[in-house]
Amino acid sequence: MKQDNKAVRETPLVIETRGLERNYRLGTETVRALRGVDLEIRRNEYVAVMGPSGSGKSTLMNLIGCLDSPTSGEYRLNGQLVSGLSDDALARVRNREIGFVFQTFNLLPRSTALDNVALPLIYAGRPKAERRERAMDALASVELADRMTHRPNELSGGQRQRVAIARALVTKPSILLADEPTGNLDSKTSEDIMMLFDRLHQDGQTIVMVTHERDIAARAERVVTLLDGCIASDNLQDPLRFPTLAERSSG
């Protein structure tokens, strides 16, 4: 289903891929994890990526997040061709443009929540006072202002994922990528995280999220389904509206 709405068409593209392929060599065999993916994502979209296990969802997310390089095809981020970038330029893109949320949180185990969140700002070359302030703000925005000095092993799974989300957001990236962000969380905690995503989206954040669960995908405006490394369907939908925490407690 094509997007014909004029307003949508005029919104700038954040992500644009053309014939994106990614092969993995396993000994003599070649696994074609992605076989030519064309995908456009505009600013402030909320996209859920679905598909069976092994269909290439993570592979796609890693390419979009510049954590991996495609075997062939083009990838433009905010209009800039990523493929030809130098190592240092890529590091800069990861640092400034992309916030990546992993299924397994990937926090530094021996650092406090605050230090974990401030880490990307170190690589952004921000001074210490600013890092501290922005990391505190980011933690406050995921409702963890009171857990700043805790280390990951002193936090619950949901709290860890919120630290990871705060870390992804602290550099104000143009896109938030999340690969099964609730995959390691129970349904109650998942619900909290999804409400956080809803709110971020309402605040204007562009989000791409991989999920296996229909009811989580239902919150997005658009669902891209992968099958064997190809896009099988790409549907706009009316996102199911869930009351936010604030709405729930006030109403």
Binding site: D87, A91, Y123
Partner: peptide, 15 residues
């Protein structure tokens, strides 16, 4: 893993 994580957050090789 830690190196990978740091790079994913924007660390350059020289960092």
């Amino acid at each position: 893993r830690e190196i990978g994580l740091r790079k994913s957050l924007g660390a350059r090789r020289k960092d």
